[in-house]
Amino acid sequence: MSVPGVTMRLASLAAVLLVGVVSGGAGTVLHQRWWGLLLAVATALVVLAWLPAGGLRLAFALAWCVPVLRGALARPAGGHLISADAAGLSFLGASAVLLGAALATVGGARSTGRGRAEDPRVPGPAS
Rank of each mutant, 00 (worst) to 15 (best):
A59G: 01
A42W: 05
G107K: 13
F91M: 08
A14P: 01
G54F: 09
V66R: 08
R75T: 04
G115E: 00
W34L: 13
T43E: 04
V41Y: 05
L17R: 05
F91Y: 12
A101Q: 15
A14F: 06
L89Y: 09
V122F: 13
S23Y: 04
S95D: 05
P4V: 02
V122H: 11
W64P: 01
T105L: 14
V41N: 06
H80P: 01
F91V: 06
P4D: 01
G27E: 03
Q32C: 11
R75E: 10
R75G: 03
T105D: 12
R121D: 12
R121G: 06
L99W: 02
L17G: 12
S90P: 14
G93N: 12
A44N: 13
P125T: 15
D119A: 11
L103N: 01
L37K: 01
R70C: 13
A42E: 02
G25Y: 06
V29N: 09
A96P: 00
A117I: 04
L18W: 06
G107V: 11
S83D: 11
A14R: 04
A102S: 08
E118H: 13
P76V: 00
P125R: 15
G79E: 07
L18H: 03
W34A: 14
L17D: 03
I82D: 02
A49K: 03
V41P: 05
P123Q: 09
W35S: 15
G79D: 09
S95R: 02
V122N: 05
L103W: 02
W34S: 15
V21M: 11
A94R: 00
A59P: 01
R110M: 10
A87F: 06
A96H: 00
V106M: 11
V106D: 08
A15Q: 07
A40D: 01
G79L: 09
V16W: 03
G107T: 12
G55A: 15
S23D: 03
M1R: 08
